[in-house]
């Protein structure tokens, strides 16, 4: 532990926080969903995001012990814990993205470090640098077809899959946690561009934003 500087970047103090979309809401507004909205967008801000690097076997053991889920060892795998609030996603053969309720990440990092002991691994906290957007509704898939180069047809993109791919002129981590819902993990600095793109491309489906 002493060889790596862990740092809790959060505070319990009552400090105003701004999600990556805070500026976008002020600049571009957030059309409220209506009965005619065929797709709804929702930001899930301030979650805990950790990047986990290391060998699958050694990480799997620690993740089972600490998170109680099996590390998805196969490419594009995405698994959730029993109550669905914690997920772990395959990013690369030695990289996984863990998303947990905000505030849990520092303790989780410490517990994983403890469980991993002297193994070669890395954990980076990236929660301030990305946010999670959800898309729901019958037009969500077509909206994604306008935006990402990856094939989002259900036969190719079943529930439990996640990929990093091209979104318009930026990148996104796209996940499908359930039949109805898609998740986009977006980098903070690109969040406004992504948001404006989704509003523009979603206009014909009467896109609404839940806040």
């Amino acid at each position: 532990m002493s060889n790596v500087a862990t740092f809790d970047t959060r505070t319990e103090a009552k400090i105003p926080v701004e999600s990556p979309l805070a500026y976008s809401y002020r600049r571009s507004g957030a059309p409220a969903p209506t009965a005619k909205s065929r797709v709804v967008l929702r930001e899930r801000p301030f979650l805990g995001h950790l990047v986990l690097r290391g060998g699958a076997i050694v990480l799997d053991e620690a993740v089972r012990e600490v998170l109680g889920v099996t590390l998805p060892g196969e490419p594009q795998g995405l698994v959730h814990d029993a109550d669905g609030r914690r997920s772990i996603q395959w990013i690369s053969p030695d990289e996984w993205l863990v998303i947990v309720p905000g505030g849990e990440e520092f303790e989780l990092e410490n517990r994983l470090r403890e469980a991993l002991g002297g193994a070669h691994f890395a954990i980076s906290n990236v929660g301030g640098g990305q946010t999670l957007l959800e898309l729901e509704g019958e037009a969500a898939r077509e909206l994604l077809m306008k935006s990402v180069v990856y094939d989002v047809h259900p036969s190719h993109f079943p529930v439990g899959k996640g990929v990093t791919t091209v979104f318009a002129k930026t990148t996104v981590i796209l996940r499908r946690p359930s039949e109805e819902r898609w998740e986009l993990v977006v980098r903070r600095s690109f969040a406004d561009y992504t948001y404006r793109w989704l509003l523009d491309a979603g206009d014909e489906y009467g896109i609404g934003v839940e806040r």
Binding site: E18, P20, Y23, R27, K169, F190, D192, Y193, R196
Partner: peptide, 18 residues
């Protein structure tokens, strides 16, 4: 397509942009 006007290219903002 829609890669024009405000969406011609991504504009990246810092947290203090506003």
């Amino acid at each position: 397509g829609r890669h024009c006007r405000d969406l011609f290219d991504p504009e990246r903002y810092t947290a203090m942009h506003q």
